[in-house]
């Protein structure tokens, strides 16, 4: 049990690193990532689960960070846009999004990249319809989604044949 008026000490595994911090039980993962851990790559558009902007990965599943408490994430693997690529380079999705103009204003991009990564990790060559369905929880106001679909397809192709 946690007392609502007292901060609790949490250790979360974010992008492969364990980060310790103290917070009240009511802090959402979104708030903790942005305000306590300095990971402002995760954006927010409504904080009510109505836009998909704040999507991150927990155990490689897309999750809305605005609707999950930080304390509910202990012991789980959290990945944000900052950690999509394991090394200093870009993840193929990040590369493809940049190349094809799938990021216009770039505000929905971190969330969409996370959703798309989970898709490609479970389905190496998704059809256009499968991409459409997987991204149905992420709104984008700039692109009309078309360049996003194309970028996911390009990334999938490159991940199939990594070395050229």
């Amino acid at each position: 049990m946690t007392n609502g008026k007292q901060k609790i000490l949490l250790a979360l595994r974010v992008n492969g690193e364990v980060r310790e911090f103290a917070c009240y039980p009511n802090r959402t993962l979104l708030e903790v990532l942005r305000e306590d851990l300095g990971l402002t790559g995760t954006k927010h558009g409504c904080e009510l689960g109505e836009c998909g902007t704040c999507t991150i990965l927990i155990d490689n599943q897309p999750i809305l960070s605005c609707l999950i408490l930080a304390l509910e994430c202990e012991g789980r693997e959290i990945v944000t846009v900052e950690g999509l690529s394991p090394g200093p380079g870009l993840h193929p999705l990040q590369e493809a999004f940049g190349e094809l103009g799938a990021a216009q204003c770039g505000y929905c991009t971190p969330g969409i990249l996370c959703t798309a990564k989970a898709l490609l990790d479970r389905n190496r060559r998704p059809s256009r319809a499968e991409i459409r369905a997987a991204l149905a929880g992420n709104l984008c106001r700039c692109t009309g989604y078309i360049k996003i679909f194309e970028a996911v397809e390009l990334a999938a192709e490159r991940m199939e044949r990594p070395s050229e």
Partner: peptide, 22 residues
């Protein structure tokens, strides 16, 4: 059709929007 110059920053979460400033 060159890649957007701000693409890599936007695709890695490095772009600082106003609410990202602390």
């Amino acid at each position: 059709s060159l890649a957007k110059v701000d693409g890599p920053a936007k695709c890695t979460g490095q772009t600082k929007f106003a609410d990202d400033l602390f």
